[in-house]
Nucleic acid binder design. Structure first.
Lengths: 123, 123, 123, 123
DNA sequence: GTGGTCTAGACCACA
DNA sequence: GTGGTCTAGACCACG
């Protein structure tokens, strides 16, 4: 459960945890049904407040990425039925693509970059 | 200069303004050299405080997207020299792609989506 | 944390705060890792608005002199990797040296003055 | 009369003009008694408002660097009697030296840099 | 308790 | 008329 948290980042810590767990699930490093560290364990490991980890977990449950499990605490949800991507995802994606374009990346560059990043996940 | 601000969003208003202007420049709706609305005008139009708009403009200047020509207000910068994309852009992109994958989009779906969004920009 | 602000100066207050903190770090009065007064405390102490102090801190963060550890307020950054001095620093230095020369200080006078000022910093 | 003005700089244009004239005098490019361009001429040449140039000239006269001359407009003052450097000069110098130190320049580096910059003037 | 955001409104510096 | 600065005070997000 390797998390790299930047305590001086603009992005709130709970959000960083949330994001990295999402990436971890997409990656395959976290598999459906797999148990996550307890809140206290993860808090101790990363040196953050338990409330912060709790908030991240709560957010992830609410989004459907995680589930509470009676017997084994918090586990990764099974594959969710395919659906429309969230509007917020599209908005963020649009901003990122704009930034890439303005950094001088052409259509091909972007396609290659996206393919590479997508491939990195799903291993 | 149509901005759609969501006042109850988690994303700060000045950040929303910043993001939409970046998208607008990538779009081609805002062209290099073009003058932006004055801080006061944009504040009035959107119903936010001048300081909020000011903060967005300052952020954009600092990132190099805008320039404050002391004689003629705030204008869109000329094309910036191509460079490496920001690390923060890549991180955000990685998260968005993970969310798409977990929403059930395959490699091809994502490629199509990205191509479409990228094409929407650029005129 | 003694700051001497001149409220009738041309130099904006937040810039004065920024400058004096930079001098303080170079001095050694503020050491890497040391926590700075909270925005509120410094605002109360100096009699300026919190937003003014906030702006100074934000500027210093952006320049890398300070870090906002989300857990423990604002602290002095560790030693930054040596690098080329900023162009703006050199420009300001060139102007100051010209003023000294025109005030009648010769090469040796300037060398002595600079050495003295530099020595005052550094512990 | 080569001025390089940056219209998107933080530094006001009149201040940039003032600074560069001071450096020019220290340089020796502008010599005591030498006539400066008229306000209108300099304004036309640099593309700024006459009021801006006027403000710079006024400031320079007030500081004693320039003098009004009945017959030939504005001229560079004769060498001023040596005196104590201005407090504002020392303050700015102290800030610049702090920035240099924090950029990793040691005592020797700074001495060399200052000597070089000082030598560049006075040619 | 910390910094971050935002407002309403004022004043100033600049061009 | 433009952006920049500042205030007093409020509210919120974060940890």
């Amino acid at each position: 459960m390797l998390l790299h948290l930047e305590f001086d980042s603009d992005i709130p810590i709970y959000q960083q945890i949330r994001d990295q767990i999402v990436v971890g699930i997409a990656d395959g490093r976290l598999r459906p049904g797999q148990q996550l560290p307890t809140i206290r364990a993860l808090a101790a490991e990363t040196g953050v407040n338990t409330m912060t980890v709790s908030k991240a977990y709560q957010l992830l449950k609410q989004e459907g990425y995680l589930q509470a499990d009676r017997r084994s605490g918090t586990v990764v949800s099974g594959r969710r039925p395919p659906g429309e991507p969230e509007e917020s995802t599209l908005r963020a994606l649009r901003v990122s693509l704009s930034e890439l374009r303005l950094a001088g990346l052409g259509k091909e560059d972007v396609a290659r970059l996206v393919e590479r990043l997508y491939a990195e996940g799903g291993k």
